[in-house]
Nucleic acid binder design. Structure first.
Length: 208
DNA sequence: ACCCAGGTGGCCC
DNA sequence: GGGCCACATGGG
């Protein structure tokens, strides 16, 4: 049986919903190829404060124009930011997000050359670098790290906050406080973090 | 005609 | 450090 409330919560969610596999969101089944990882990274921006469906519509537009890789987006933005913005329009806040996407792809390509190298980066340093980019806050940075790059960082979002409140884990809603709380009580394992967060979202949507 | 959705930055105090 | 606002779409 679970030693603490948080790993116990994971067990309960697993018992209730089973293994989340890829069901939590289309663009974020556990990516296997670098191409899928790039899609996850792009999706992390597109879903900010957006209905998933709308983020998917934006991704579909990018796909239709063969603009789903980091390099494609960077080159398109370099040439025509307005075109990039129009493609992702369904995701909302699209002018801002076009700028965010361009900045993120530029960072990854210029600073690291691509996914292969960025995956080797030291985690703490990379997280700081991501947070320094415009439009990348803690949740987006950690989603990129956890789901795009398989780094062991626990993602906190609105669903996690609601759950923590509901299960009386804490009243504190602060991002890094909650992140530390979950990480402290779990084995440091990106697979576990991925599955747990997925289950939290599934449960949050289910109990609405 | 509202209200909401897996956020972030900028400003104010 | 916390409170408030802008950013924008598609669906219920």
């Amino acid at each position: 049986m679970a030693k603490n409330k948080i790993s116990g919560l994971y067990q309960k969610l697993r018992a209730k919903y089973g293994h989340p596999k890829g069901q939590w969101i289309l663009w974020c089944k556990r990516p296997k190829t670098d191409k899928e990882r790039e899609e996850v990274i792009i999706g992390a921006i597109l879903t900010q404060r957006a209905n998933w469906r709308n983020a998917e519509l934006a991704l579909a537009n990018l796909k239709k124009e063969r603009m789903k890789s980091l390099k494609d987006i960077y080159k398109l933005g370099l040439k025509n930011k307005k075109k990039l913005a129009l493609l992702i329009r369904p995701s909302g806040f699209y002018r801002q997000k076009a700028g965010y996407l361009f900045g993120l792809t530029e960072f990854i390509l210029k600073k690291y050359g691509g996914l292969k190298m960025i995956k080797k980066a030291e985690l703490g340093k990379l997280r700081e670098e991501l947070l320094n980019l415009k439009g990348i806050g803690p949740e987006t940075a950690d989603s990129i790290l956890l789901y795009g790059l398989d780094k062991p960082v626990f993602v906190i979002d609105e669903y996690t906050r609601r759950l923590a409140q509901k299960r009386r884990l804490t009243k504190n809603r602060d991002y890094h406080f909650l992140q530390a709380l979950f990480e402290k009580n779990l084995k440091k394992d990106h697979r576990l973090y991925q599955d747990f967060h997925a289950l939290i979202v599934i449960d949050g949507k289910n109990s609405k």
